[in-house]
């Protein structure tokens, strides 16, 4: 096994082009588990942690460009107001020690259907910034997941950053598990109200071969919510929304839960999440107060 330590991003891209079989490593919270448990030995490890710009995030217009090396702990500490859905999901990842190392880009690299970043990234239309010596390309999040633990990256590509729009309305993430920490989701759900566009975004986790949106539920809610009058949520609308979210899933029975349980739980999660988000919308809370007008830091690094 080789251990490759690029000092710069350009060097990392060169190394990945020369050694496409090399496994990138950031927090190592997926990669090292595999090696320690002898589930597979990479031909080489490509350590991305020395590259400073990967640890930076910046605000570019209405989008946060989240460097691939920004840890969950920093995302929670520095970006909670602007990326509330992703920050909530980050809070549920593993334990403090895992969040101090783990990254959203690592979650995307692993592309586990149970990864907690995926539902909020789907709900708020994130874009993955992939790069290789051939150039950079932007992959809409909905096209990123291609199968169980498979993603759209080419063998010579690395994730440079994830572009996540700043919240323009309430966002929630919820997840089913056996305890409050250290839990791989039995199923999970995220919602984002894009209030200005009168649109609802969703993401469903751990209930299909890939994380996915619940498009029929999004369209139903967008049409039935009283965006102008902000009247209370009709319980029938909430219930139907939950059913449509559950209908978008294609769960399996496994050690964490039965398919029937996942379907039921998803309907409940989705119904509740819509209720919380709508209550925030009516109260005029939950959106990023600094959106558009500046306010808050515009960049962060470590």
């Amino acid at each position: 096994m080789d251990f490759l330590r690029p000092r710069t991003w350009a060097e990392a891209l060169d190394l990945k082009a020369a050694r496409p079989e090399a496994t990138p490593i950031q927090g190592g919270t997926d990669v090292m588990v595999e090696i320690n448990l002898d589930k597979g030995r990479p031909a080489a490890l490509l350590d991305l942690t020395p590259i400073p710009e990967l640890r930076e995030w910046s605000r570019e217009g209405d989008v946060i460009r989240l460097g691939a090396g920004v840890t969950y702990s920093r995302l929670i500490g520095e970006l909670e107001a602007r990326l509330p859905g992703l920050a909530q999901a980050s809070r549920t990842v593993g334990s403090p020690q895992i969040r101090n190392r783990g990254t959203v880009a690592g979650n995307l690299g692993a592309a586990s259907p149970a990864g907690d970043s995926h539902p909020p990234l789907l709900a708020c239309d994130a874009v993955v910034e992939a790069e290789s010596v051939r150039g950079a390309r932007l992959i809409p999040i909905g096209e990123f997941y291609t199968g169980v633990k498979r993603n759209a990256l080419a063998p010579d590509e690395l994730i440079r950053a994830v572009r996540v729009p700043v919240a323009r309305g309430p966002q929630y993430f919820s997840k089913i598990g056996t305890r409050n920490a250290m839990v791989i989701a039995v199923c999970s759900f995220s919602i984002a109200l894009h209030a200005a566009e009168r649109r609802v975004g969703t993401g469903v986790g751990s209930a299909a071969p890939t994380p996915r949106r619940a498009v029929a539920a999004e369209e139903f809610a967008a049409a039935r919510l009283d965006w102008r009058g902000r009247s209370p949520l009709d319980p029938d609308v909430a219930g139907r929304f939950g059913e449509l979210v559950a209908g978008a899933a294609a769960p399996i029975d496994d050690v964490r839960g039965r398919a029937a349980y996942r379907t039921h739980a998803l309907a409940v999660l989705a119904r509740r999440a819509l209720g919380w988000a709508w209550a925030d919308f009516r109260a005029g809370t939950g959106a990023d107060s600094s959106a558009g007008s500046g306010g808050g830091d515009d960049r962060g690094s470590q």
Partner: peptide
């Protein structure tokens, strides 16, 4: 300065 699980840090990452 940050607490981490040493079992998940590749040795070379501590360089």
């Amino acid at each position: 300065g940050t607490p981490v699980c040493a079992c998940l840090v590749a040795a070379g990452q501590a360089e």
